[in-house]
């Protein structure tokens, strides 16, 4: 099961990257995917049952446009701060708490935070994330969590936990 998922993933990636349906290409990709999948399947895929639940894929599809919208907003925000002659920044490192449990979910959360409005993740300790903000609005743990994390967390819990 785990191995089949990884083999399928690698083979799809191969097809997309080569974009070539000749039989030599298919055989080379198939053999490579088979070997890599058989060796690393148990390491790379930790929760095979989550992969085949369709509602998780639905929420992932919903997550992508939200993420792109937030990322575009973030970029205009940072661009404004770069171009402003006085540089209106109030940087600082705040601590927030996450309710996510799965490692992949936390990784996605940290990456999403890094790519969105004026914040990026510095470190993770247990369930606390340390976040550098370019413009600190809330210093308390609860308020900062509500401001920074909750937007993505609601969806990421449905996807990964």
């Amino acid at each position: 099961m785990k191995k089949a998922i990884l083999i399928l993933f690698i083979f799809t990636l191969w097809l997309l990257l080569t974009w070539n349906a000749s039989w030599q290409s298919l055989v080379a990709g198939g053999v490579t995917a088979l070997m890599v999948g058989l060796i690393f399947g148990n390491l790379a895929v930790t929760a095979p049952m989550k992969v085949i639940q369709p509602q998780r894929w639905f929420w992932l599809l919903l997550y992508i446009p939200i993420f792109i919208w937030e990322m575009a907003k973030a970029n205009f925000d940072v661009a404004y701060r770069v171009l402003h002659p006085k540089m209106p920044i109030h940087p600082g490192i705040v601590k927030v708490k996450t309710r996510l449990k799965s490692p992949l979910g936390i990784a996605f959360l940290a990456n999403s935070i890094t790519l969105t409005p004026g914040t990026f993740t510095i470190d993770l300790k247990d369930e606390y994330l340390y976040i550098h903000c370019i413009n600190v609005r809330h210093q308390k743990l609860d308020e900062a969590t509500k401001d920074i994390v909750s937007r993505f967390e609601k969806l990421l819990i449905k996807i990964f936990d």
Binding site: M71, A72, N75, A79, V82, T114, F120
Partner: peptide, 19 residues
């Protein structure tokens, strides 16, 4: 170039350059 310390510079480098 403009931001004052390494952390703020990384903000500019990651966000704008990724986008």
């Amino acid at each position: 170039l403009r931001f004052p310390d390494i952390y703020n510079r990384l903000q500019g480098a990651t966000k704008c350059v990724t986008f």
